[in-house]
Amino acid sequence: MFGPLAVAQAFAPVLAANGGGALVDIHSGLSWLATPSAYPSTKSAFWSLTNGLRLELAAQNIQVVGAHLAFTDTPLIAELDVPKADPRDMVAVIYDGLEAGDLEVICDDISRDVKQKLSGPLEALYPQLADN
């Protein structure tokens, strides 16, 4: 989380001096979920940071976009045996969101499904809780 904050702090003055611009933070669909590891917690903190930066930088005409995506074919998840989205497709979706002025871009079906379930009962996200 400190890396993206440092990037925002470095580039925001440059963008503001040039009349504004955009920062895109790449989030995971795990930004909204909990698992028995620290990874989703760091993604959730990053999501919160993005939301705060959006508010802080709006007056400087800087659009801060949070892009949520699940499994994308990158070296980070090369070894996972799961269906993966093409990074070029994800970039195209993000650019479309930027052009539309979106504050948040939900890039793929997995992320859309998770986001939709957030407004439902907790058991929709965590079926194992239904038995308790």
Rank of each mutant, 00 (worst) to 15 (best):
M1C: 14
A6C: 08
A6W: 02
V7A: 12
V7G: 02
V7I: 15
A8N: 00
Q9A: 13
A10P: 02
F11I: 11
F11V: 14
F11R: 05
A12Y: 00
A12D: 04
L15N: 06
A17H: 08
G19M: 08
G19A: 06
G20K: 08
G20S: 11
G21L: 03
G21R: 00
G21C: 04
A22K: 11
L23E: 05
V24N: 01
D25W: 09
I26A: 05
H27R: 12
S28I: 05
G29T: 05
G29C: 12
S31C: 12
L33A: 05
A34C: 12
T35P: 00
T35W: 07
T35D: 13
P36R: 13
S37H: 11
A38P: 08
P40C: 10
S41H: 13
K43D: 08
A45T: 13
F46R: 03
W47I: 02
W47E: 08
W47Y: 15
N51T: 12
N51V: 05
G52E: 07
G52N: 14
G52Q: 12
G52I: 03
R54F: 06
R54H: 11
R54S: 06
L55P: 05
E56Q: 14
A58Y: 01
A58R: 13
A59P: 01
Q60W: 03
N61F: 05
N61S: 14
I62K: 01
Q63S: 11
V65M: 02
L69C: 14
A70V: 03
F71P: 01
F71V: 06
T72Q: 09
T72S: 06
T72K: 08
T74G: 07
P75W: 04
P75T: 10
L76A: 15
L76I: 15
L80E: 11
D81Q: 15
V82P: 05
V82S: 05
P83M: 10
P83D: 12
P83K: 13
K84L: 04
D86C: 09
P87Q: 12
P87I: 10
R88T: 13
R88C: 09
D89M: 09
D89V: 07
M90G: 03
I94F: 10
D96L: 01
E99H: 10
G101A: 04
L103C: 06
E104P: 04
V105K: 01
V105A: 06
D108I: 03
D109K: 11
I110P: 00
I110T: 14
S111A: 14
S111H: 00
V114Q: 00
L118S: 03
L118Y: 09
S119W: 06
G120N: 11
G120S: 13
P121D: 14
L122E: 13
L122H: 04
E123F: 10
L125T: 04
Y126E: 01
P127N: 13
P127T: 08
P127K: 04
Q128K: 11
A130H: 07
A130Y: 01
A130Q: 14
D131L: 13
D131W: 10
